[in-house]
Design a protein around this nucleic acid. Sequence first.
DNA 1: CGATCTTACGGGATTCGTAAACATA
DNA 2: TATGTTTACGAATCCCGTAAGATCG
Lengths: 305, 305
Amino acid sequence: MNLSSRQIDAFLALAVSLSFTRAAAQCHLSQPAFSALIRSLEEGLGLRLFDRSTRHVSLTSEGEDFLVAARRIRIEMDAALSSMKSTASLERGRVSIALLPSLSAGWLPNVLRQYRSAHPGIEISIADVLSEPCIELVASSKADFALAAVRVDTPELCASPFCSDGFHLVCRRDHPLAKISLTTGHGARTTSQLSALAAWPFIHMARHSSVRQYLEAAFHPQVMRTVMEVEQLATVAGMVRAGLGISVIPTLTAFHFKHPDLITRPLPLPGLTRQIYLVRRRDRGLSVAAQALHDHIVHHRPPSE
Amino acid sequence: MNLSSRQIDAFLALAVSLSFTRAAAQCHLSQPAFSALIRSLEEGLGLRLFDRSTRHVSLTSEGEDFLVAARRIRIEMDAALSSMKSTASLERGRVSIALLPSLSAGWLPNVLRQYRSAHPGIEISIADVLSEPCIELVASSKADFALAAVRVDTPELCASPFCSDGFHLVCRRDHPLAKISLTTGHGARTTSQLSALAAWPFIHMARHSSVRQYLEAAFHPQVMRTVMEVEQLATVAGMVRAGLGISVIPTLTAFHFKHPDLITRPLPLPGLTRQIYLVRRRDRGLSVAAQALHDHIVHHRPPSE
DNA sequence: CGATCTTACGGGATTCGTAAACATA
DNA sequence: TATGTTTACGAATCCCGTAAGATCG
């Protein structure tokens, strides 16, 4: 038999009010339609649930048994419906994203603050890791989507361009490079600018970082004077401030280097543009909460350079 | 929104099989109809529950949440439906009746044995008490119906004739009355028969018993030679056997007096017929189990005299 | 006779199944 | 191309509301 929530509601309304007329009104039905609904329930169960005469309505013995069962069904239905409703309306939910530290520290917080104030009930999980683990997290469904510097295109994953990020030179305020102008150039002009930079002791990021990859490719075949390799941008800042060398860092992370002793300047060299992709699974759509964050993030994507 | 068991079943079938075609067959629906059912559920909830392409079907994040809720709803529904089904089919239930001891000891057991073998799962409660408490139990809904010697007719209760019960003389085999013939009589004949009985020492039931009431009325205005008043028929039997007196007992209880030392003989006197009524509440119908017992009892009612 | 539940019935919405269109591996 | 989902659409069914009927106090 088919048992509908309307039948349950009708039964409960009648069991409480013990009046077809009032219960019908409560269910927003005409009284005959309501009567038919109760009858269909009774026929489906094969039992009379109410003793009724024109003047009196009361639960039968079987109706009393069904009352407790109907209440339990109603409770489960209400729980399911309200849970789904709050999920659909973004009152509750969870979303997990993975993205580069360069994005997570500077650009993300403000964007996320807006999202959170709009949907305070949604739990957010952030994995601020390098591109490779970002992809891993999405591939293993531990993250809903990722912002990473790798264009993946597998049966499982796909990437779409998200934004492009330039690079900034960073050096001490008293460094000779702080004075010279860096302009967009082509050919020989570019080569000479690269030479000017390559001449100075350089603080590098670790080899597996996308920043390092881009720099190696852009400066090739020039050999750079690597002073050291570090993992964290904060360490780069400290080293440069101590006068151990210069560095080149993504524009998105330039805010880390706002310091009286330091200068950051755009490095508008061709090829020195890091592309950042939004990576997601091919098969699964995003959850409601993830889709909302996705839309919000895309809407507030950083300015591309 | 309206949530039906068909939607729940469709969702669960699809969540398990992850194939519209197979799930549709399982639900005895054409595949497009099944697809529409799933869509109606998703639209009702305002959420996509499945990610589907032509080659792959999988639960969304929200669908996984709904899966646990749907299972709980299904469990409650199944519990309710199976409980109601077993009640309707008389596999389970309870029935409570009140009836006179004269009926409960002799006639009832065999009738009840048949009922019980047909419906072994139904709990039966018997109150073998005198007419007044019988009525009380029905009036207070502690008994579904009663068999008693009182014709009640109140706003709450109504009585219908059930059977009529004659009376038997009981005396020792060596008693003078054991020899004489007792025939149906009228007028003077009756009076003389009554006189013949009233002459002997008599073992009476207590004043509040219906048997005593009938005897007092039938013998009036003759004065009986009351030896003693007792409560139980078994005591009457013992007293008569000891030669302390004779007695008159309902035909339905005559089996109590089958003893080598005793004689029981019908007492076909006009007015000496006890009417037994089936008493039930006016407002409430009988439960399924009670109705079945009612029908069975009426069908096997004792032969009226 | 008044209040209330049931039956009767016409119109409208829902739902079904068949067939065609569409999408993916 | 083959499998499987969605769309299109006519037909059957279900459901609702109005109106009339029945029943009890």
